[in-house]
């Protein structure tokens, strides 16, 4: 237990070594590079779509698209909203407004935390990586909750409320609602964030091994 905790959080107080000693370790350089690249990937992800929903119906031969970025949505919003009003679903623009508004600020903060981690090698800085590593999961969970909220809270006075019961939209893969079939998939923004997560995880690993090695060298000296 203690070993695994140590593995996660890095060396204990007794393992403390000098900055100079740590910096000499190649693992430290590797971790710094991984943190920086991870941070860059996270920053880049803001410019790429995270998720896309395609709605298919006979009268829309090209399909209708909803594309979600971390800070905005685009695609055939007006048309999808127009269709949704028949079943009493609220306009898409009103969903996750706070999340989308704070996303750039929050992402900046998360990235700064990772960069702090890259340049400051105190072991208790390690938890700073957690928000960045959880970004993809937070995104998915938030979207799922909103979609479920939207699907479950339909206006009962809508024209087709008798025909379409409250439902939870499928957020990954294939689904069906009314005459529409839906295909949802994760896109490059999400994969960038995931890559960032993995890179930072490896960064933590190398940071820890570098610290242990440095401690060992110090002890030997």
């Amino acid at each position: 237990m203690e070993r695994s905790l140590r593995a996660l959080l890095g060396a204990r107080e007794s393992d403390v070594v000098t900055v100079a000693a740590t910096a000499r370790e190649s693992g430290f350089v590797a971790s710094m590079v991984l943190f920086i690249v991870g941070a860059a990937a996270l920053v880049a992800s803001i410019f790429f779509p995270y998720w896309e929903l395609r709605l298919n119906a006979p009268q829309y031969p090209k399909g209708l698209f909803l594309t979600v970025f971390i800070d905005h949505i685009k695609g055939d919003i007006r048309e999808i909203d127009g269709l949704n009003h028949y079943i009493g679903m609220r306009p898409l623009g009103a969903a996750a407004e706070i999340e989308r508004t704070v996303a750039p600020v929050a992402l900046t903060a998360i990235v700064l935390m990772v960069l702090a981690l890259a340049f400051v090698h105190r072991k208790w800085f390690a938890p700073l990586a957690i928000p960045a590593m959880l970004m993809p999961l937070i995104f998915l969970a938030d979207m799922f909750l909103w979609m479920r909220h939207y699907g479950q809270n339909l206006d009962p006075s809508a024209a087709l409320s008798g025909a379409i019961r409250p439902f939870t939209p499928t957020i990954l893969g294939h689904g069906t609602i009314g005459q529409f079939s839906t295909d949802a998939r994760l896109l490059s923004g999400f994969w960038l964030a995931t890559a960032a997560s993995v890179l930072i995880m490896f960064g933590l690993h190398f940071r820890r091994t570098a610290r242990i090695a440095a401690a060992r060298n110090t002890a030997a000296a």
Binding site: G63, G75, S188, A195, A196
Partner: peptide
């Protein structure tokens, strides 16, 4: 891998399909 992932999914700049 990360870079490739970005390039595979064209960014939708038009807001259209």
């Amino acid at each position: 891998m990360a870079v490739f992932g970005c390039r595979r999914q064209d960014v939708d700049t038009s807001g259209q399909p």
